[in-house]
Computed example of a mutant assay.
Amino acid sequence: MSHTPLTSRRNVLFGAAALSAGTFLTACTSNEAKDDPAAQEVGQGADDKPGKPVTIGFAGPQADHGWLNAINDNARSRAGKYSDVTLEITEGSNDPAAQDGQIQTLIDKKVDVLVILPADGKAMTQAGLKAMQAGIPVINLDRVFDSQQAYRTWIGGDNYGMGLNAGRYIGEKLKGKSGAKVIELAGIDSLELTRQRTQGFDDALKNYPNIKKVGRQAAEFTVESGQRKMTDLLQAVPEFDAFWNHDDDQGDGALQAIKQAGREDFLMVGGAGSRNAFDNIKADNTVLKATVLYPPTMAASAIDLARALGQGKGVGGMAEFEIPAFVTLYSAVVDKENVDRYLPTGFK
């Protein structure tokens, strides 16, 4: 977890997001998980027992954001754990036309399975259709294509769930306070994902009649925009008890603005799961007390699913012979109580 060039960065996270979902996704039905300490970084562990060789093509957008860079790193790292997997990874582009050309190259190479995180889900739907029509199954990662015919399986995060769980966390913290006030630092308002996150947050707050949302600004998933928009919020709403920030990268900027203003009189909840956010939560020396996950480890699970698909296997822990058509990951809340568990999954 952009708009079109920065694009729908996380369009449409592992429950107890990054880790427990790994238990579900990484083992194929005929195999057992290997006790591999290195594999604990993004899941319970992938089965390294060699099977049918699988060539996986991976096409993602340009890594212009910490989360997107971690997507690529997770894909490479997971593929490297399998002796039977060859990964063909493209350079990545935020230009749909350029990414379409990269996907065509992977189709021409006759890869066994394609994992695609599209620069723009709607614009790249035809690329997914071309691959499927060529007999290459597609794992659609995160930003969803417009047609279910363009992919075999979709895996991604729950933007509505991010807002819902952020709202619930704040609601529980403030439920004993009469006349509590909250604000929101959103992402790019033109994105459906931003609207979903805000809707989830607003819906959660409906369960806490003592809480009123009194301010909102939209930033751009960058440190600079986070600092600028948080400064505006602090000036516009001088008194509030908590706020939710949609993105941990822009949250770094928000924390700078808060520090410059000398404010310590509210709690902050972030979004996505960056290493900086985890470190701040663990240190417990800022207003940031929790973050709601949208972790890039979903790329590692996409590789697991692609490998299972290429080998004709299902998913461990399920009775079916086939992998699921949709995998929506859970948006866990990470606070001081559980942050050590998630530290290895934090993106930089």
Rank of each mutant, 00 (worst) to 15 (best):
K206F: 05
P118R: 00
E264S: 12
Q99K: 00
A75H: 03
T29D: 09
K259V: 10
F201T: 01
D284H: 09
N210V: 04
A59C: 14
K313D: 09
G45H: 04
H65L: 08
S274M: 10
N285P: 15
I281R: 00
F326N: 12
R228M: 10
R76K: 08
L114E: 00
M230G: 04
A166H: 02
K212W: 09
F14P: 13
A79T: 04
N285Q: 09
T86H: 05
R307E: 10
G92H: 03
A257R: 00
G270M: 04
I56Q: 07
V292E: 08
G161C: 13
F14A: 08
W154Y: 11
L6K: 12
D247H: 09
G167H: 00
V214T: 02
C28D: 07
M298I: 13
G215R: 00
R216Y: 14
F266I: 06
I107A: 09
A150G: 12
Q62M: 14
K206V: 05
I116M: 12
L255T: 00
T222S: 11
W67K: 01
C28T: 15
Q260W: 06
L25I: 08
G314V: 01
D284T: 02
A63G: 12
V292G: 03
E224F: 10
Y330V: 08
F201S: 01
T90A: 09
Q99C: 09
Q126N: 07
L205K: 00
R307Y: 11
V333C: 06
A219M: 07
A38M: 12
T23M: 11
H3R: 13
A283N: 06
S178A: 15
V237Y: 04
D335M: 04
A204T: 02
P344H: 03
R168C: 07
F14V: 15
N285K: 08
A306G: 05
G57Y: 02
S2W: 07
T105Q: 15
A46E: 10
Y294L: 13
T29Y: 04
R168M: 14
S8V: 10
G161H: 10
P50D: 11
G167S: 05
G312T: 03
N140T: 03
P53C: 08
A21H: 11
D142W: 01
Q148F: 15
K130V: 13
L174H: 02
Y330W: 14
M318T: 14
T198A: 15
G176Q: 06
P96C: 11
T286L: 06
R341S: 10
A302L: 13
T297A: 15
F240K: 03
K177P: 14
Y151G: 02
V85A: 06
Q227Y: 04
V287C: 07
V223W: 13
A98G: 05
M132L: 13
M230P: 04
W244R: 01
S301Y: 15
N245M: 06
G253W: 00
L343P: 09
G262H: 03
N338S: 05
G156R: 00
L233R: 03
G215S: 06
V269L: 09
L267P: 05
V292Y: 02
M124A: 07
E184M: 13
T125H: 10
D241S: 02
N280W: 07
V138W: 02
S2G: 13
V327K: 02
G312F: 05
Q199W: 06
L293H: 02
